[in-house]
């Protein structure tokens, strides 16, 4: 008896959410346009159905641009993960490295692309390479910091237990630290995945040649109705990226999956 009901609600929940978001969007657009008679209504928040119509009319352009942006996002994200992961391991291995690196990671995050871009261009002298470097630069920080806090949260007694068995450092990491930090790693990735998409859109704006970012800039600057469809594409890509990480988590962290299910049953 329980099975079919749960299956239904599984489909029902996202449906209701989608309907709810669509409803609220349309309602706010309606209020702006018809009740408040705001002359800027279409700029503040156009009707979702209008946005979708333009999106469908320009589906080719949008999907093509989306693909370009997403592919760059994946590259930036993967490089960001690698760097974030290595940094987190290094920092958790040595308190000294952590103490030295943390403030500088912070400072690095505070240098805007406006200051950074000319330097990176000077170093690599190539537009496409610069774009990947900058996308990576934006993506790695949330992964590194979440991973590190995952490592740190591993209870000391558990670590001590392994050390009393005279386990070597690599063994401790392999058997205890990595598995324990995986949930945090995924939290970091969930935050970083849409950021990688954003980074990729920002990087589109460096060359304004192709991608969703270029469409956004073109339509912001030159008018036209493609701005909101481009924003919508960005949002959909963000959802897709988070969903992909969640899926990966579901596949890679089975023990979390079970505990979540147990929780779900008891609620």
């Amino acid at each position: 008896m329980k099975g079919p009901i749960r299956k239904k609600s599984r489909l029902l929940v996202p449906m209701v959410w989608i309907a709810g978001v669509v409803g609220v969007w349309e309602l706010v657009a309606f209020l702006l346009a018809e009740v408040l008679k705001d002359p800027q209504a279409a700029n503040k928040l156009p009707y979702l159905h209008d946005v979708i119509v333009v999106f469908v009319q320009n589906a080719d352009t949008m999907l093509q641009a989306g693909e370009i942006t997403l592919s760059r996002a994946v590259v930036g994200f993967l490089l960001g993960i690698s760097i974030g992961f290595i940094l987190a391991v290094l920092m958790s291995l040595s308190k000294i490295i952590e103490k030295i690196a943390m403030p500088y990671l912070l400072i690095m995050q505070m240098i805007p692309i406006l200051g950074l871009a000319p330097i990176i261009f000077s170093l690599v002298k190539d537009l496409d390479t610069s774009r990947i470097v900058i996308a990576t630069y934006i993506s790695f920080y949330p992964i590194a910091i979440n991973m590190l806090s995952g490592f740190q949260a591993v209870a000391k007694d558990r670590k001590d237990l392994l050390y009393t068995y005279a386990a070597k450092q690599p063994v401790v990491y392999l058997k205890l630290m990595f598995p324990s930090a995986l949930p945090s790693f995924f939290t970091g990735m969930k935050i970083a995945a849409p950021m990688a998409v954003t980074a990729s859109i920002l990087v589109d704006m460096l060359s304004n040649k192709d991608g969703i970012g270029a469409i956004m800039i073109y339509s912001l600057y030159g008018g036209g109705d493609k701005f909101w469809p481009a924003v919508l594409t960005g949002i959909i890509m963000g959802i897709l990226s988070t969903a992909a990480v969640s899926l990966l988590e579901w596949l890679c962290v089975p023990w979390e999956r079970h505990s979540r299910q147990r929780e779900g049953d008891s609620v």
Binding site: I113, L114, A117, P118, F121, S122, K125, D126, L127, M205, L206, S207, N208, I217
Partner: peptide, 15 residues
């Protein structure tokens, strides 16, 4: 062009 750099920047840095 882009709002992140100027044309002069790109000539100076060799891009």
């Amino acid at each position: 062009g882009s709002s992140d750099f100027t044309a002069e920047d790109q000539v100076i840095n060799g891009t």
